[in-house]
Simulated scan of single mutants.
Amino acid sequence: MATALRLPSLLSSRAAPTTAARATIRGNRAGSFTHRVAAQPDDTTATTSTTPAPPAGFTPPVPKRFEVKPGQSNNIAGAALALPFRLGTGVFVLGYGVTLVDANEISPDQYALDFQGRKVKETSKVGQCPRPAKPIEIYEFEGCPFCRKVREMVSVLDLDVLYYPCPKGSPTFRPKVLEMGGKRQFPYMVDPNTGVAMYESDDIINYLAKTYGDGSVPIMLKLGLLTTITAGLALSGRSGKGSSYTPAKLPSQPIEIWAYEGSPFCKIARETLVELELPHLLHSCARGSPKRQDFFKKYGLFQAPYIEDPNTGVKMFESADIVEYLRATYAA
């Protein structure tokens, strides 16, 4: 299931980039840039990052479904505050449907929830939508309401995205956005499948809907100012977590994470990835995602978040333990 992705060597160092990416600008409405990336940065002078190692004696925890680790109740409650403000946007994929069936109608190797002696069968429309051959790349950070809107759409469309975190004060990817697009503004999306790159959250959402969905946008993502306000309120329970940079070592390969925007457990794990400016390939797996079945077939259970770190070989569940592992391994 893991995907072998290696960061460009330019981004495997904290050294400042030496050559800006060249791009051809296409016209768009005022306040928004859309352009096609014409070349990759020159990385011939980049240096190699230090190879990270997990903490001494580290053992991945045993997954415990829906269990909150002692001392984490406030974190989970704060992250869950987003659900009522956003009416669950980012919890379900496009065209989500559910039916209750007899337990014997679902084979043991098929992912399904148990409910009062029956099984919950989930369906969606994402299997009918075009899928990107390469992960879409998005530069953003957790504490930004405009970025949250795009992350919700990513979950709705069940997309895999290579996130480049840009928390305030971060030295690598925040300056990179200025080089590529001409503005230090977030979110910023690059689609290597089409060559399209753009700012403006609403433009990105509409682009993703038309390119990798059925063209529709969930109601909570097209209410204009009200969408932005509720997205901001959704972040209020976390008091700025995922907004500011913590000095860290940059790995040579992105960390892979199975997560989705509507999960409070996934939220606290991704906040740490962002604060440490750790690039990560996110495999969206909201309710109704076909990836849940793929995951279940491989591991015999489904639980998110789950990470695989190709830099250390560590594979693990449990959000609070993931946070501890990331800080112990990558914080400078």
Rank of each mutant, 00 (worst) to 15 (best):
Y111G: 09
G78R: 12
D321L: 11
A56N: 06
D109S: 11
P84A: 06
Y163W: 05
A30H: 14
I205R: 01
G90Q: 03
L273N: 07
S236N: 05
R174K: 14
P60W: 00
F265T: 05
I219W: 02
K168G: 14
G224E: 13
G224Q: 04
R131L: 07
A30C: 08
Y139V: 01
A234N: 02
G195A: 03
P84H: 07
L159Q: 00
P165L: 05
V154G: 01
K315I: 11
I255T: 04
S12F: 00
V154T: 10
D294W: 04
P279W: 10
F66A: 12
D42M: 08
Y199H: 07
D214V: 03
L113Y: 15
Q72D: 13
Y260H: 08
P108V: 00
A79K: 06
S244M: 10
V101W: 02
N75E: 14
G313D: 08
D321V: 00
G95P: 00
L250Y: 15
R36M: 10
N28L: 13
Y164Q: 08
Y260K: 00
Y299P: 06
T18F: 05
P130C: 03
A77I: 09
A79G: 07
V91L: 14
L87P: 01
P254E: 01
S319Q: 05
L81F: 03
S252H: 14
L223G: 15
Y188I: 01
E67F: 14
I76V: 07
N74E: 14
Q293C: 09
R148T: 10
